[in-house]
Design a protein around this nucleic acid. Structure first.
Lengths: 199, 199
DNA sequence: TGCGGAATCTAGACAATGGTCAGATTAAGC
DNA sequence: GCTTAATCTGACCATTGTCTAGATTCCGCA
C-alpha cells in the first residue's frame, strides 16, 4: 500500500501525537516562517494524515496557540537560566531581560508568532504561560526595591518589559547590527544601561 | 456579459490601479487581519481580475511591502503632527513617540505588518521610508543635547525607539489595559517618564 | 477473556488561494 | 495612422485548511 510506505510507524495509533505535532510544528515554523506555515506539512513530518491534527488542536490556530505556549515556557526557562547565577538583584533583572532577548535571537519565528501575531490569543493555557514569564520578571524587579509603592513597582515592570521587548524586536529587524563590533557585549552594555535608567 | 456587470468601471484600463490596490489592500488588511489577507479579495474590491495585481507588485509580498511603505509614511506623519506643536526639545521627543504609539493603536494590523512580519524586507523604497521615520526621531533626540558624543546619541536613539516600540506592542497586546483608568493620560505619563529616564 | 463505547486516525471531497501563461484590449510614441 | 509597449483578462494548476464518513484501536467493565 502507498500509505504503509509513507508512514513512519507500524501502529495505527501514534501514541503521543499531540506533542509530536507540536515539535514538528516548531521545526516547520522555523524552516518555513509564519507566512508559509503549512498544517499539512506538519502532519506529513510526523507521518500522519493531514486531517489528524484537527482531533488534537481543532484547527491551525489551535496548534499555533499550543506552540506559543511552548514558546512562552522556553522564554521563561531562558530567563531563569541566565538569572539564577546572579546574586545581585539588579543584575538578576538584567540577566532575565537578556534571557528574553536570547530567546528572540535564537528562535525568531517562535518569538514573532508568540508576541506579534493576531491569532495568538484567547486561551487560558496561553494566559497562564504568559503570566508565568511576566511574573518572573516582575518578581526580579520587586527584589530590587521591595519597599516600593505597589503602583510604582507595576509601572517599572511594564516599562522594563517594554524596553526589553522593543530591544529584542530591533535586534530581529537588524537595526542594531551596526553595533555588533564585539559580539553581544555592546548590546548587553546598552541594555543594562537602559534597565538601570528605568529602575 | 458577466464581467461587465461585476466591473465598477467602463474602461478596460483602470487608470491608477497601483494606488487603488494599495488603498484596497489597507482596507482588506484592517478588516481581515494579516493571517486572512487575500490578494484576490483586494482585486475584487477594485473590480479587477485577480491576476491584475501581479503586473504592478509582482506577488503578494510586493503588494504588502508597498503597503508597509505607506504605513511608514503615515507613522512619520503621525509623529510630525504631534511634535510640531511642541517647542521644548524634550517634549518634542515625547510627542513624536506618542505619535508613533498613536498610529499603532489606530492601525494595529498595519503596524504589525510593518514592524513584526517576516516578509517585509529587502526593498530600497522600504528602507528609505523606514529611515525617514527613524531619522525624524533621531533629529528630535539630537536637539535635546546637541553637544553630545555621536555614539552616545545613537545609543539614546536606539533605546528610546526600543521603549517606544515595546510600549506600542504592549498596548496592542492589551497588557496595559489595566492602566487605562483615565483614557490615555496615565499611559502618556508613563511613557514620558520612560523617555526622560533614558535621555 | 470478551464486549461495547470512546478515542484516534484515514481518505476523500470541497472551496478558496496564489502564481503562471497566452491572449485580448488599450495607451503611447513616432 | 501604425507599431510597440503597457495593461488587464480568463483559464489553469498546485497547494492549502476544513469537513465528514468510515476504518482502526484503545479502554473500562462485565
Amino acid at each position: 500500500m502507498a500509505l504503509a510506505e509513507r508512514r513512519k510507524r507500524d501502529t495505527y495509533h501514534h501514541g503521543d501525537l499531540r506533542t509530536a505535532l507540536i515539535h514538528a510544528a516548531e521545526v516547520e515554523l522555523t524552516e518555513s516562517g509564519i507566512p508559509n506555515f503549512s498544517l499539512r506539512r506538519v502532519a506529513a513530518r510526523v507521518g500522519v494524515s493531514h486531517s489528524a491534527p484537527s482531533h488534537h488542536f481543532g484547527d491551525t490556530q489551535g496548534l499555533l496557540i499550543a506552540l506559543a505556549v511552548r514558546a512562552l515556557q522556553q522564554v521563561l526557562a531562558s530567563m531563569q537560566v541566565r538569572s539564577e547565577t546572579e546574586t545581585d538583584p539588579h543584575e538578576r533583572v538584567v540577566a532575565s531581560g537578556l534571557g528574553y532577548i536570547d530567546f528572540a535571537q535564537a528562535h525568531p519565528s517562535m518569538f514573532r508568532l508568540t508576541f506579534g501575531s493576531d491569532m495568538i490569543c484567547g486561551s487560558p493555557e496561553l494566559d497562564r504561560a504568559s503570566e508565568a514569564a511576566f511574573g518572573h520578571f516582575a518578581e526580579a524587579i520587586f527584589a530590587v526595591s521591595p519597599d516600593e509603592d505597589r503602583e510604582a513597582h507595576r509601572e517599572k515592570v511594564y516599562l522594563a518589559w517594554a524596553v526589553t521587548h522593543g530591544f529584542a524586536e530591533m535586534l530581529l529587524a537588524g537595526r542594531l547590527d551596526c553595533l555588533r563590533d564585539d559580539g553581544n557585549a555592546r548590546i548587553e552594555r546598552m541594555y543594562r544601561r537602559a534597565v538601570t535608567a528605568l529602575l
